[in-house]
């Protein structure tokens, strides 16, 4: 799992990570699970073009690319709700997005936007998805807000390790469910 960060830290990290490009590509191919959020989502693409037009090369693991919006003051910021399909079961994912980058050329998005922006301003798609890769602009934090997503990732990883179908023992998610119910009602009320 990898997330974004402040510019200085992000560029130190990117320089370091680029040495392991081939290993990462190999791991993705072998089905290792990747959860990529915000800056990491962008970094796994072809490139990031900043406001001045400079191209910052990505790891080129996937074919999408990101361009900064030219107006520095504009960012996609706010609560976001998307609908995703995990193992063919539809579920809503809640989070918060805060990004200036607009990501293009996604064939397999993570979900449909019910509230918020998604990959670009006013987009109806959010993130990038493969069974072993979830790349998204949603923090929130993502996992505690969305127990079904956490279960999906845990189940995927266990299945890959033990080569058999694993059924997870239920945990007490009562606070999480109350929280989801409250927020989904509140967020989607005016939609």
């Amino acid at each position: 799992m990898q997330v974004g960060g402040a510019d200085q830290e992000q560029s130190i990290l990117a320089k370091d990570l680029i040495q392991y490009k081939d290993n990462i590509k190999e791991a993705v191919k072998e089905g290792v699970f990747f959860l990529l959020i915000c800056g990491a989502y962008q970094l796994f693409g072809k490139y990031y073009k900043d406001v001045e037009g400079n191209i910052i090369p990505g790891l080129e693991i996937f074919d999408y690319y990101t361009e900064a919006i030219l107006d520095r003051k504009k960012r996609c910021i706010g609560n976001i709700v998307i609908e995703v399909s995990l193992n063919d079961i539809k579920t809503k994912i809640i989070g918060f997005e805060n990004h200036g980058g607009q990501t293009f050329d996604i064939d397999t998005p993570f979900g449909d936007v019910l509230l918020g922006n998604g990959n670009k301003f006013g987009d109806n798609k959010e993130g990038f998805f493969l069974p072993n890769v979830i790349a998204t602009y949603l923090h929130g934090p993502l996992l505690s807000k969305n127990p079904e997503l956490s279960d999906y990732i845990i189940q995927y990883c266990l299945k890959r390790k033990y080569q058999e179908e694993i059924i997870l023992e239920p945990l007490d998610d009562s606070f999480e469910n109350l929280c989801r119910k409250q927020l989904i009602e509140r967020f989607l009320k005016n939609n």
Binding site: S144, K145, E176, L178, C179, Q182
Partner: peptide, 22 residues
């Protein structure tokens, strides 16, 4: 109220001793 309750629960504090009220 629930967000902060979840945060505290995740830190390992006994969930039965957390009371959220909107």
């Amino acid at each position: 109220a629930y967000d902060i309750a979840i945060r505290i629960k995740t830190a390992g504090f006994d969930v039965h001793k957390i009371e959220p009220y909107l």
